[in-house]
């Protein structure tokens, strides 16, 4: 069976994570911010599965399942918040949320 360099998988995960991080930091559209968060979570899952393949153990895949659950719950709540925000402000620009009036 042909082999795959361990560090290349981790480097791929790192680059995907960085793409997501740039999206979170520079975007002003909240939908893109949520999508970039998904990319980052997915990159973490990829790193866990690569580690699981490296050590020949299933624990990394179990952590991937936990990340999957977390992503599903997070997206459900996040999309609910986006819909509520669009109803109130009629925009997806996160800078309208800058005033916290208590």
């Amino acid at each position: 069976m042909p082999s795959i360099p361990y560090e290349h998988g981790l480097i791929l995960a790192a680059i995907l994570f960085v793409c997501g991080l740039i999206g979170v930091l520079t975007r002003r559209n909240i939908v893109f911010v949520l999508m970039s968060l998904e990319i980052m979570l997915n990159a973490c899952g990829l790193a866990f599965v690569v580690g699981s393949a490296r050590w020949g153990h299933a624990d990394g895949q179990i952590m991937f399942l936990m990340i999957l659950t977390l992503a599903a719950a997070e997206v459900a709540v996040g999309l609910g918040l986006i819909i509520q925000m669009y109803r109130r402000f009629h925009t997806v620009d996160i800078s309208v949320l800058s005033e916290m009036k208590g």
Binding site: M1, P2, S3, I4, P5, Y6, E7, G9, L10, I11, A14, I15, V18, L21, I22, L25, T26, V50, S52, A53, R54, G56, H57, A58, Q61
Partner: peptide, 27 residues
């Protein structure tokens, strides 16, 4: 973007030091 690129270069330079070939075993 530039600052994150610096972090990425650091991360990659750490990662390339550990050269291990993975022979995937199906779990």
């Amino acid at each position: 973007g530039l600052l994150i690129l610096v972090l990425l270069v650091q991360l990659v330079s750490v990662l390339v030091t550990q050269r291990v070939d993975v022979v995937p075993v199906e779990v």
